[in-house]
């Protein structure tokens, strides 16, 4: 497994610019313990790996149920990496950091 890239190098998919914006949307179903855990975990990862260069929106599916079909959500919590492409879905409470990093394409797949 490669070490995770620092955000400054911006390794991903030849995206331009040294500062690489990540756009993430985290879909949760109500503020359950699992949801709270997922938010805390993904926030920690974002802060550690691309502080100041990311955008994280938390969406409560109960409040905006129409988004579930449009965003192809089945599991909760689901974190959609909307940018950079390719789009990916990370599901679960984000407790397995290694897998979250894989999902964010910060490390290559084992």
């Amino acid at each position: 497994m490669e070490p995770s890239n620092t955000p400054e190098t911006g390794r991903n998919d030849g995206a331009p610019g040294p500062r690489h914006a990540y756009v993430l949307r985290l879909f949760v179903a109500g503020m359950t313990a699992r949801s709270t855990r997922a938010v805390a975990n993904i926030l920690a990862i974002c802060e550690e790996h691309f502080a100041g260069a990311y955008e994280l929106e938390v969406v409560n599916l109960y409040e905006r149920p129409s988004l579930a079909a449009g965003e192809q959500i089945i599991a909760a919590p689901t974190c959609v990496k909307a940018f950079p492409l390719p789009q990916r879905r990370i599901i679960g409470d984000m407790s397995n950091t290694g897998r979250v990093l894989e999902g964010l394409d910060l490390v290559t797949h084992a």
Binding site: F27, A68, I91
Partner: peptide, 19 residues
Amino acid sequence: EIEETGDYDLEGLFVRLGY
């Protein structure tokens, strides 16, 4: 496209179907 990173349920599907 999917990475599984811990505990989850299919509430997204329920919400979707319910809607």
